[in-house]
């Protein structure tokens, strides 16, 4: 066996490790009730903004806290706390994808992804991403 082969085998093993780690670190699209069961884990939760409820951002009080209510795909509603400033055009959003975890009653969002319907009649939706950590 050549030395190159040995090295190649080691590298292939590392490659498989990389792939397995990708699988294990990949997230899951989920809903609030699943996320509430496992409060240590981060989930991707999609849903809609509850426009009837309070959308609160008061920068004079705290420029890094934005709260709102989201209804997930199964109709469960939760208050969402986001550690950052309010995303521009937030109210216009059609669909929201949150990444974060549940706490007692709330959901702590690390990232907010917004899907905004276009003003024009084309079907493509534009995504915007907001991250709590820079």
């Amino acid at each position: 066996m050549k030395k190159t082969h040995i090295v190649a085998i080691i590298l292939i093993a590392v490659g498989i490790g990389a792939i397995l780690s990708t699988v294990s670190s990949s997230g899951t699209y989920s809903d609030f009730s699943v996320a509430a069961k496992n409060k240590d884990m981060d989930y991707h939760v999609n849903g809609k903004l509850d426009k009837a409820k309070d959308i609160h951002y008061n920068p004079e009080e705290n420029a890094n806290l934005f709260t709102f209510y989201m209804i997930d795909k199964k109709g469960v509603e939760r208050k969402v706390l986001y550690n950052g400033s309010k995303p521009q055009d937030f109210e216009k959003s059609d669909e929201i994808v949150l990444v974060g975890h549940c706490t007692g009653k709330d959901f702590m969002a690390k990232t907010i992804l917004l899907k905004c319907p276009s003003k024009y009649s084309n079907p493509n939706e534009d995504m915007k991403e907001f991250k709590a950590k820079g």
Partner: peptide, 18 residues
């Protein structure tokens, strides 16, 4: 952010200033 509001360990980083 230099305000006194502290949200605990879940929200440690205050990166925006008014």
């Amino acid at each position: 952010n230099h305000s006194d509001v502290n949200l605990g360990k879940d929200f440690p980083n205050n990166e925006n200033v008014m």
